[in-house]
Amino acid sequence: MNICLYGSGSRKIDKIYTDEAYTLGGMIAENNHRLVFGGGDTGMMGACAKGVHDNGGKSIGIAPEWIGEFEPLCKDCSEFIYVNSMDERKQEFLNNSDAFIISPGGIGTLDEFFEIITLKKLKRHDCPIIIFNINHFYDTMLKMIDEMDEKGFLYKAEQLYDIATNSDEIFEHLNSDNDDKQ
């Protein structure tokens, strides 16, 4: 399975987050899955990729070449896909992924999350989406989404995502979703 990780590339992230991202990367490799990510070498992306690579796993980095002006790119990727724009990047994430994990991140991560969840709602894909709510990072956003639903702004006929607080829970959701499809 190709597992796409959305997450920050910031170097300022507390170790509680990057340690968990590294653990997730190790589990992706140990379960013979492949990481698909934005190709960054730092932050959540870099920590997860390092966990994958340190455990003999494979990864696909996807980024415009100019992103290197803002953050260093991972040199250890098994494959790297260069695109021209952030829109093309998100399309390549979708084209190359079987599941999506939304780890803690900033504006770019939120953009990716809301697009992938909207596309699922519009039935453009049926991949599992898991919000990686490390240390309650996404509690406020989840509360906002619940309030939007309660006030009638959303049509939540079905569950569009799952929530996990650690790497073990992510794999419980992925395995459960895989069992449901068989």
Rank of each mutant, 00 (worst) to 15 (best):
V36C: 05
A49E: 07
D41M: 08
E79M: 06
E92D: 09
Q159L: 11
L110I: 13
K181L: 14
I13H: 10
T118M: 03
G40L: 06
G43I: 03
T23I: 15
L154E: 05
I130T: 01
V52P: 01
L154G: 00
D14Y: 09
Q91K: 13
D162N: 14
D19H: 08
L119E: 05
E79S: 09
Y6C: 08
I13L: 15
D149W: 04
I107Y: 15
S85R: 01
A21L: 14
A47C: 13
M144W: 11
G51T: 12
G25V: 09
S59E: 04
A63Q: 03
I134H: 01
N133P: 02
E147Y: 08
L94T: 11
A29L: 12
E92T: 07
D139V: 05
N175Y: 12
V83E: 11
N175Q: 10
I170F: 11
N31Y: 07
L154H: 14
N133K: 00
S78E: 14
L5G: 06
D180S: 15
N96K: 09
L5H: 05
T165F: 06
L122E: 02
K15F: 10
D139G: 08
L160N: 09
L24S: 06
D168E: 12
G152Q: 01
R124I: 08
S167F: 05
C4R: 06
K120M: 02
F37Q: 03
G26D: 07
I102Q: 00
S176G: 07
T42R: 12
S176L: 11
M1A: 15
L154R: 10
S176E: 15
E92R: 10
A63M: 04
F171R: 00
C74A: 07
C77W: 07
G56P: 10
H125Y: 06
E150H: 10
K123G: 10
A49F: 02
I81S: 12
Y138A: 05
M141N: 10
A29G: 04
Y155K: 13
I60K: 03
G46K: 12
Y161Q: 11
G25S: 12
D126C: 08
I170G: 03
D168T: 08
K50M: 09
Q91E: 14
N95Q: 06
S167L: 07
D76L: 14
C4I: 05
A29D: 01
